[in-house]
Design a protein around this nucleic acid. Structure first.
Lengths: 205, 205, 205, 205
DNA sequence: TATGAATGAGCATTCATTCAT
DNA sequence: CATGAATGAATGCTCATTCAT
């Protein structure tokens, strides 16, 4: 009747949700959202099809669940911003290493599914906008502002700068995921390379 | 029976294919690949469902057809490289203006569909790799090499540079398509802004 | 694009719809609406499941289609009212014979399904009300009024009388359908019996 | 193990059964048998789904339980036959008032569900026949026979008469339930009206 | 006994594809 | 070639029923 206040129940529910979401991520990443059947996910999770519907209203809700978990992951990892210590170059490197290298293992696969679906599904797109992109940029903005004041000489449009840098990271991940050989080979060089690129530019004659 | 040598026939066939592909692009862009039915496309093209199967083997072949037309478009537009005139800054601006502004109208929508599907469908991904990405980078590489020799002071990894720049463009388009308000507002400032960003970097103190 | 004006097409469509509806009526009558699957109907009609959906939006629409055909049947048969010739007793007998005997063969089965579902499904109930019951009573009322003026001595509430008589017919059909042995045996005596009952009453001492 | 001889246990069981049946009747009446889920009933009864299966073998058994309770109700109320006092007209009025007015509140709704399902489900139909209709008619018959001998002048087929009268009551209830406006407005006039109708007929000129 | 999570058979519906006209 | 009706495999989702706690 009332929202079950039983903490053990709640834990069980959370665990089962997690189990299902992890299975979903795995299969989605392999076959894509639309090619994946509920049966696939159930099999991967080792449960019955119907059980999934005890925890998620429908297939789309699984996607939303993945969003949420991305959100949490993000929030937990945002702590890396404390790196904002001293050296500009070191900080940039750390940021890029985090985004590009550390997250590669699990999250790139999630990323693939989410991005693919978000581009094409309006409802998801708006949720993604509101729940992930906007907050991320908003938090980043205030932080970057201080940072820029200390470290950047000429005045730049910060919101565009942020988008250029994050866009570059995003675009490189996409190219990586699409299968670009060069990127897959030299991926670990990126943090160093990009740091120079971003801070110094190409340096034309 | 034999490969139709009739040039008029060939033209008719090409025209019908084009008609169907344009309809497909339009509907795919609106609803995404999987949400779009053959009936939708037939309706948009003003023909019967069955007719589509006289020109394309199946739904996936429509996607491949779109690839091909992207390819042609690209090749035709690659002529812009002749701009490689003199001034570095002007050239970069022209390149970005081309990629970001001129192509925005029609192609972003195609882009959305193609990218979404490519991320998730292995067969398409490999085709995209082979037919679009690799040739594009290959052609670009030789050209950029000469360009760099003339204009860039310090030695850089060109293949990574190309990917950084194209990735940035790609990522920004994705962010634009996902609905980022800032980008949609300031989109026309990008060529100028990015030119400075790419050539000079952030210019840290 | 426009409503197909092709008369041959229209006939084919009407024929197929009829074929499907007849199959539906048959299976519904045997197993009831909810126990009947689309597959059952398709099998009975000798077509594929999907074909049904080319002619009816969904399972409920089959029910509505049955309504419509009842309507048409009714309208065609209402001509019997011309019997309103002279003799009261003969007329009443003819009416009852029509309702109870002539319609028994096919329509009782339809009736069973429709009534069962109408009692329980609000949407259908309202449609049934509006499209079948109300028009039937409305038409009958004007007619009965004249008839009553000529033949009935004491003044009675006509609308209640009509409902009493039609209700009696309805109730007897229901009892018949539910399996009452006595009614099934003596069904053919009903027109005569009811005529006396309605016109003369029980005739208490 | 053994048939629980514990009278307190038995009371508890009976109470729980009653609680469940009442919930079932309520929800069935609102949504119909097939639209109602066990979960609905459990929620209405304020118990868990599984508990229902401790008292009823399956969903159909709930329907049978409702039959039984109708039976008991009927038997208890049959005592009204004692009214069979003197005046024919008064008796008839009392009978109709009982059937039509007194039972209206709760029982019509039950009636709706039961009838709907009985028309369509063979197993239930036979049970209804055997357990409700036949006994009712059988009991009534002996009684009506005496009554008729005293009060009815001309000889009539009593079994048909009984069915005509009960059919009329049944049919009117159905019309009422289907939503006939006239009946819903004038329902309370029915006992008087029908008494005259049944005893005197229409009285044709 | 009471619970409610887990189950999986069952079903309505969709849609890519075929093919007779 | 064009058509669009017919097809039926495939799938998301529901819900009666079971059973471990």
């Amino acid at each position: 009747m009332t929202a079950s206040p039983d903490p053990i129940q709640a834990q069980l529910i959370a665990a089962r949700r997690k189990q299902i979401l992890e299975a979903a991520v795995k299969v989605f990443a392999e076959k894509g959202f639309h090619q994946t059947t509920i049966k696939d996910i159930a099999r991967e999770a080792g449960i019955a099809q119907g059980t999934i519907y005890n925890y998620f209203e429908n297939k789309t809700a699984l996607m939303l669940g993945i969003f949420d978990s991305m959100n949490e992951t993000d929030r937990r990892e945002e702590s890396f911003t404390e790196l904002a210590s001293g050296d500009v170059r070191e900080f940039m490197k750390a940021y890029l290493r985090h985004r590009l290298t550390l997250l590669r293992a699990d999250n790139f696969e999630v990323f693939k599914v989410v991005l693919s679906e978000v581009m094409v599904n309006k409802e998801l797109r708006e949720l993604f906008q509101r729940n992930i992109l906007e907050p991320t940029f908003a938090i980043a903005e205030t932080y970057v502002q201080q940072w820029a004041a200390q470290h950047i000489a000429r005045s730049v449009d910060l919101s565009l700068t942020m988008r250029a840098v994050s866009g570059m990271v995003l675009g490189l991940i996409v190219e990586y995921l699409i299968g670009d050989q060069v990127l897959q080979t030299k991926w670990d060089e990126l943090p160093d390379f990009l740091t120079d690129f971003i801070l110094d530019g190409l340096g034309v004659k």
